[in-house]
Structure formats: structure tokens, C-alpha cells
Design a protein around this nucleic acid. Structure first.
Lengths: 151, 151
DNA sequence: CAACATTAAATGTATGTACATTATATTTGC
DNA sequence: GCAAATATAATGTACATACATTTAATGTTG
């Protein structure tokens, strides 16, 4: 369905304005689908993202600073998302011995097992393979990268 | 900059996965720019969106249900965003006389004046006219619309 | 080495999001 | 006409976001 019909706004100032609205709307649409997929595993999207970064580092630890650098939303509050993961025993937090200001965060075996389970469920694949061809997905990537080139 | 470099993840499962990540990342990037533009006017993005819908209705009122239908993020809690706008005297809330379950929400002259001020500042134009040509913006709109056609 | 600056994370506060529940008002069916 | 169903918004709770402030450790410089 065209964005005009989705949000019942028949007119936009121009194609750029429409693209902005469309982008934000489509991102929200996707994130809702993802959140729904994670819900079965009692995870939120940001929690999943942090777990995934930690798996990428495993068995090396990550600091909060590294998590922030790699997160999609750079300004979110990684400390408190790690709090939730720690409560669920999916990660551990240990003061870094070589720099006691930093904290080493590691994914636990339970965390790794949960990610495996999510991978196996195919929940993410379903959200990803919308109805674009590979060529169209590539074209979309190029346009988005270009869009962010503004200053 | 390519998404691989932005989030320092050199490899993706496939072009679709990458497009998903790229889309969510770019949407966040845009929303941050917009939020920054609104901050000068002491508004948040959802507050601005609701004010804009109310201006579209003016001088007719809108109900909460209508706001939800038109908002970009359909699941957000319109009631509480209207609370904030009411505190700032940018909107009024009056129980609808013909259906006392509903509430008529209207933008005030102060609200209209604020939107005019934001328009005049060109804050939104700057965020919108990223570095895409008109043809590219149109292509982006087509790809996004198509993407949402999944089931 | 002591005073100051910088770094790393945690915490505080206001706002927003997601979803369930509640409070009224209205409609519907008997 | 009244009980049950439905409609409409508000409220409660957990989590996340945005941004300022605080706490503590480490670096730097006179």
C-alpha cells in the first residue's frame, strides 16, 4: 500500500518530504514486526541487539562504550539495557581489572543458547525477506547510504 | 558513508538483512536530526506530529482516535502526548457534546503560531533535503512501499 | 606529589512506547 | 426499558530514549 493511503495523507510538499515520512513509517513497521518476533523469547529489540553484539565479541568482553558504538541507536542507554540482561542471567558484568573505570560485559552460555534458539526459529528471516528482490534490496541500501551523506 | 562502516559490522547475512539494518539506522539518524530541529521550539517529534494533524483539521476538532489513525507510530499513546500539549496551552480538550465518550481536541492560536514559526525557520526542509535527487527520492518511495507489501 | 582535567559508567528526570486494565458513555438485543 | 456488549479515552506498569548530572578511576601538569 502506498504511504499516502497508509497514513491517509493524500498530499505531500514534495517527493523528499514524502520519502522522509515513508522511511520513518516503514522503519516503525519493521521494528514492530521484529519486536513481535522477540516477544516469544521475552526479549526487547534493544536487548536482542546488545546480546548480538556480545555474541560477536565472545569470548572477549565488551565495555559499555563499545556497545554504544555498535548499537543502531547510538544515544540509547546501554547501561540500563545491560541491567535487564543481567537480571535475566544472559550477561555478566565484571569490573575490568586493567582499568577499573570500565566494566567487562560478557554473554553467558544461557545468552548464547537463547540467541541460537532465536536463530533456529527463523523469526528474523521472516521479518527480513519482505517482498524485495535482491537487486531491489541492494538499490535500497545504496539510496539509504546516499541519503545520509547530507553534511 | 556505507552502513557497514557506520556500525562497524563488515559482514551481513545477505542484502535483505543489510537493508533492514540500514533502514532502521537511517530512520534513527533522520529522527535525531528532526528532534534536534524541534528542540529549539521546546517540542518533541510526536508532539509536533500531533500539532500538525490538528492544524490539518483546523478549525474542526480531532478525537484521540483520529490522532492515532493518522500518527506515524500508530501504537504510541496519544492521550499523554495531548496532555503535554495541553499543559503548554497549544491545544484544548473539550468533551464532545454529541458523544460524551469522545473528546474534541483543537489547536489553539498559540499552537498555530508555533507551527508557523517552525515552518518559517526552515528547520524541517533542512532535514528533508538530504542528498537525494528528486528521481532518487521517488525511487526510494517505491522501494519502501513495495517492502511493506509482505503479506 | 597534589590539583586539575579527562574518561567510563551509573543515575536522575522527563518523555515516549507497548500493552493491559479501567472508567464512562453509548448502542444493541431481548 | 434494562442488561450486556461495544466504543472511547484515560490510567497503570515495564521498558526505552534523551540528555544532564554524579561517582569513581585514571591521566596530566605544574
Amino acid at each position: 500500500m502506498r504511504i499516502e493511503d497508509e497514513i491517509k495523507q493524500p498530499l505531500f510538499q514534495d517527493e523528499h518530504q514524502k520519502a522522509i515520512i515513508n522511511l520513518i513509517y516503514t522503519s516503525g513497521w519493521l521494528q514492530l514486526r521484529q519486536a513481535c518476533a522477540f516477544k516469544k523469547f521475552a526479549l526487547t529489540s534493544p536487548q536482542f541487539n546488545i546480546l548480538r553484539i556480545l555474541r560477536g565479541q565472545h569470548p572477549q568482553p565488551a565495555t559499555v562504550a563499545l556497545l554504544i558504538e555498535r548499537m543502531l541507536d547510538k544515544t540509547s542507554n546501554a547501561s540500563r539495557i545491560v541491567d535487564r540482561l543481567e537480571e535475566k542471567k544472559l550477561v555478566t558484568r565484571i569490573v575490568c581489572p586493567s582499568n577499573r573505570r570500565a566494566v567487562d560485559i560478557r554473554i553467558t552460555p544461557a545468552g548464547l543458547a537463547l540467541l541460537d534458539q532465536i536463530d533456529a526459529s527463523g523469526a528474523l528471516k521472516a521479518a527480513a525477506h519482505a517482498s524485495l528482490s535482491e537487486a531491489e534490496a541492494r538499490q535500497l541500501n545504496e539510496l539509504l547510504d546516499k541519503m545520509r551523506d547530507a553534511e
